[in-house]
Design a protein around this nucleic acid. Structure first.
Lengths: 120, 120
DNA sequence: GCTATGTGCAACTCTGTAGTTGCACACCCA
DNA sequence: TGGGTGTGCAACTACAGAGTTGCACATAGC
């Protein structure tokens, strides 16, 4: 089993699934730009309905990328960097791990080649 | 417009879409573990058909996460860390950007609150 | 109290895609 | 040269989810 996949796997899973959708990334972008916004406000500048935005916000909320605050009759959403940061670290660690393994394999291949040359 | 989204947007887009699928992450994990593998080999330990694996590998290839090498009649795949590393950096920068904006908004809110208090 | 506006809920359509199966083709080996 | 094994291509099914629409409900403001 992979220890990288195990560490905070649920969070990473949700964040990756959430960020896979371009519309959701756009929503996040606008949200981080304004600091706070409601689904209705966000739907204004986008070519999709408010309900679609609401669904996207629900996904982002589940992924921990967004936090909802009820103020009177409206619900304000704000960006939450923690989950994103965690996923970035996970990804960087994974890339480093791949690099390590590739370097090891390259070493082994070169050693095998050298042995081959010597035996000839 | 967001300068972060613009920088290497295509690569990030592909990588995120590719990593969103758990099966593809599993394929990548096995691939990085073995260094090299064919679609047939990878399909052995997984509960899906070779053709499904082939399709996943095609997606990963398009995303730049994997490289294919033809050796005789078989096609060997290997992990390629560059695109993943680039995406990790993009994500870290995005998280930092969110942090910055949140800090700025918090500062503004506090300043507004202080002004409110003074005027009272 | 009455109306405006913002949310929530539910049912529906539709497209993308994960997965399968069947078969043809290419190549290694005896 | 012929059989076994690995790939590629194409058609098909099935399901998740992105988006819409309609309506009921709650709250702010007059």
């Amino acid at each position: 089993m992979n220890e990288l996949a195990a560490a905070g796997g649920d969070v990473v899973d949700g964040v990756l699934a959430a960020l896979a959708d371009p519309t959701r990334r756009q929503v996040l972008d606008r949200l981080s730009d304004r600091g706070q916004a409601t689904a209705t406000t966000l739907a204004d500048g986008l070519p999709i309905s408010r309900q679609a935005i609401v669904k996207h916000l629900a996904v982002l909320d589940t992924a921990g990328l967004v936090a909802a605050t009820k103020v009177g009759r409206e619900v304000r959403y704000a960006v939450r960097p923690d989950a994103l940061d965690m996923t970035a670290r996970w990804m960087a660690a994974l890339a480093a791990e791949w690099d390590r393994r590739l370097a090891r394999i390259k070493r082994l291949a070169e050693a095998a080649e050298a042995a081959e040359r010597d035996s000839r």
